Simulated assay, not measured.
Amino acid sequence: MIRMDLKWCPMFSKLKCLLLNKWCVADYFTGLVYFLQHSPILETLTLLLDFQTHEKWHVMETYGIYDPKEQSPLLKHLKVVKIIRSSTKEDVIVDRILKILSAHGVPSEQIDIQ
């Protein structure tokens, strides 16, 4: 459903600051990747990962098979990425997000994990 909905969304040509929550990692990180690819002047990205105990299955399921090698560096304006997590159980998700950001040309020095 997420892929179908995002397919019809336009470019976010004026978007400079974006806050996404845990839905962006669902369906193999489709939401996150979409916004990275469709926000050419994005400067600040904040990811709020707050998974509850009953959502543990969801975290493992979203680990998925996303292959960041298919991406090219696109985020020339991105200056700050904040990843805010509620506990260390999001480590698997954070690792995958770091690979995706790296594949899009975001250096690790610009990423703050809290």
Rank of each mutant, 00 (worst) to 15 (best):
M1K: 12
M4P: 03
M4T: 14
D5I: 08
L6E: 07
M11S: 13
M11C: 08
S13L: 04
S13Q: 10
K14D: 10
C17D: 14
L18E: 05
L20A: 02
L20G: 03
N21G: 07
C24W: 01
D27Q: 14
D27H: 14
Y28N: 15
Y28A: 13
F29T: 02
T30D: 13
V33P: 01
Y34G: 09
Y34P: 10
F35G: 07
F35H: 03
L36N: 07
Q37F: 02
Q37G: 03
E43G: 00
L47V: 12
L48K: 06
L49E: 06
Q52I: 01
T53A: 12
T53C: 05
H54M: 02
H54R: 07
H54D: 10
M60R: 05
E61C: 05
Y63W: 09
G64W: 03
I65D: 13
Y66C: 07
Q71K: 13
S72E: 14
P73F: 05
K76W: 08
H77N: 14
K79E: 13
V80W: 08
I84Q: 13
R85Q: 07
R85I: 05
S86Y: 06
S86H: 11
V94D: 08
D95R: 07
D95C: 12
D95N: 15
R96V: 01
R96W: 02
L98E: 04
K99F: 06
I100A: 13
A103M: 13
A103W: 15
G105W: 03
V106T: 06
Q110G: 02
Q110C: 06
D112I: 09
